[in-house]
Design a protein around this nucleic acid. Structure first.
Lengths: 341, 341
DNA sequence: GTGAAAGCGCTAACAG
DNA sequence: CTGTTAGCGCTTTCAC
């Protein structure tokens, strides 16, 4: 609530509003000495432009939104979103823009608030994290021509820009690693198939299998929801199929799976080997030394902002597609430190 | 970017802008049938008010800000901020307001961006999380009369509203518990003394000591920074004083302390007992079964929003002070499951 | 109970 | 290079 307006600064500097506006926005076409004079007055008065007025007049607010749908907000308790937000805010600060957070905790909240943000009049653009397939919000944004970048490949709308990690190859690498170690009944606890990441990881698992001439046994695949509890339940069911190794679609689920295993009196990796996905756990403090697929979450966040800014600046076409590589991190849960069998 | 404006809705409904405005803002003084008619048109057109225009005209944006200073952003990797934000967004959604996040990663960033947000013209109010003592941003907000609520008791400015947890009594309980178990050399790895929470916990530790007639030994207290790495270094130094138990000012530091202990060939709780603070770790998956002080982080977040809304509505005076109780959660690291010694 | 009119503080052509 | 002139879309007195 700085008390000064453009008008007053202009008067004090003995110039017009336009000139001050040009100086503030660092536009060319102002004589150096005038520019300096105006800058002085701005400094003295502590003048700061009113964001609302600027947004109204220019249709640009310097604010972007981050939407986290309810399906993903449970992930908010694991380190994924903190990391993501870390990367996003880093980029925002660099570019001097602000970030508004829309976090939905359940379906009701989401549908109720969808309308409010769907006309995102104030926001220059939106980043949409881990949306479900066929998310109505995405359609809204598209219909309203809101600049948009998805975190995670969208299931439709090939014209959308996104940044993602190579889920297919990550899952492939995880599964191939297990196969290479000689496991014969390699199962998979998948992510929700309502998310593209869940689908892609399942596909990677299938490819590794088929490439080695293994047939796909659907009893060896159980769908989870990326949560610890989901991994727990999934593993309990999966046990009926007697897997000797399991590629679990997320570290959190791996924790749940491991809990189920312990309760069943089974040892990791002796009885059942485990590979996770994410590498976000503080591994040295965990009881489970989890082999996993590392993904560069903070970089994804940063890049999402960069891409969004580009989309805002230069329009949505052509779609920007950024895909980061993953990395297999070998610890003990896969049994790699044992002789291969 | 809904294409409709108040004006157009007014025309379609055959009334004036003012009337539509009244309906939209649910103000009294509109005949029921007119109100209904206007509502219909709004529904049909999908009209949504332009936030910037509204903010400009009314000085109310429906957006609040959350500031996380650089000193605390390292905490962003532990579960504290995710929980806090969970609570905050929950309350925001309830009240139909938006949350803008200011997260600073280092001192440079912070001082650079301070000016930008200090005149928080667009924001109806600010929540300030875990600020250092004597934070310049706080002074700015006060000087500019920005509605403000602190998370964590402020070190000065008794006129400020805040919500906090009872750090003093929590620390007292932790230390007393250790003393009660018979430990003779109870040390403390404190939080940074540049944060009130760090100070309060140290005070609680001192009180428990003095109440039992123990003298305060400054060699038994090392200052940490709430991080794992800080706890690690602190414990390495603390070892020289040969503690048989340590009250560690945060769970993250306790993890670091424990790592230092392991490296020194010491067992928890056999050689050194540990009590932490926060209870935010997924305890069942951790190798360290940490006795700790639980604080209701999400509730703190919710309450901060409620208090801020109250401050916005009814002015800053008198200061609202909300203090939540803590709870001692006993696991194995304190040695309580052994015979007392 | 309703409408007319005057801005909120800024940007953006368009002249000069 | 600088100033003038219109608004951006909404709220808010103030008459009627």
């Amino acid at each position: 609530m700085s008390k000064f307006t453009l008008e007053q600064v202009a008067e004090l500097a003995g110039v017009s509003r336009s000139t001050v506006s040009r100086v503030v926005n660092e536009q060319p076409g102002v004589r150096a000495d005038v520019r300096r004079r105006v800058r002085e007055v701005i400094e003295e008065t502590g003048y700061r432009p009113n964001i609302a007025a600027r947004a109204l007049a220019s249709n640009r607010s310097g604010i972007i939104g981050l939407v986290v749908p309810h399906g993903a907000s449970r992930l908010f308790t694991d380190p994924y979103f903190p990391r993501l937000i870390h990367g996003i805010t880093l980029a925002c600060n660099e570019h001097d823009i602000s970030l508004t957070l829309f976090l939905f905790h359940d379906e009701d909240e989401e549908s109720q608030l969808t309308r409010r943000i769907a006309n995102a009049s104030l926001f220059d653009g939106m980043i949409m994290a881990s949306s479900q397939v066929n998310d109505p919000l995405v359609s809204h944004f598209i219909a309203n021509e809101v600049p948009l970048v998805m975190i995670g490949r969208p299931d439709r709308y090939p014209e959308l820009s996104f940044v993602d990690v190579d889920n297919f190859n990550g899952a492939y690498a995880a599964t191939a690693h297990l196969l290479r170690l000689g496991y014969l009944r390699v199962g998979h606890i998948s992510g929700p198939q309502t998310m593209v990441a869940g689908q892609d990881r399942l596909e990677g698992y299938r490819k590794a299998l088929s490439e080695r001439g293994r047939s796909f046994d659907k009893n060896l695949v159980i769908e989870g929801d990326f949560s610890e509890a989901g991994g727990y339940v999934a593993m309990q069911r999966l046990l009926a199929a007697r897997p000797d190794a399991v590629f679990v679609g997320s570290d959190q689920m791996a924790l749940g799976a491991w809990r189920a295993l312990r309760e069943a009196g089974l040892q990791v990796p002796h009885d059942v080997a485990l590979v996770g996905y994410d590498d976000l756990l503080p591994s040295s403090s965990m009881r489970l030394r989890l082999t996993t697929i590392r993904q560069p979450v903070a970089r994804i966040g940063r890049e999402a902002v960069n891409v969004l800014l580009d989309v805002i600046e230069n329009g949505p076409a052509p779609a920007r597609r950024v895909i980061f590589d993953t990395e297999l991190v070998i610890r003990e849960s896969c049994g790699a430190t044992f002789a291969s069998r």
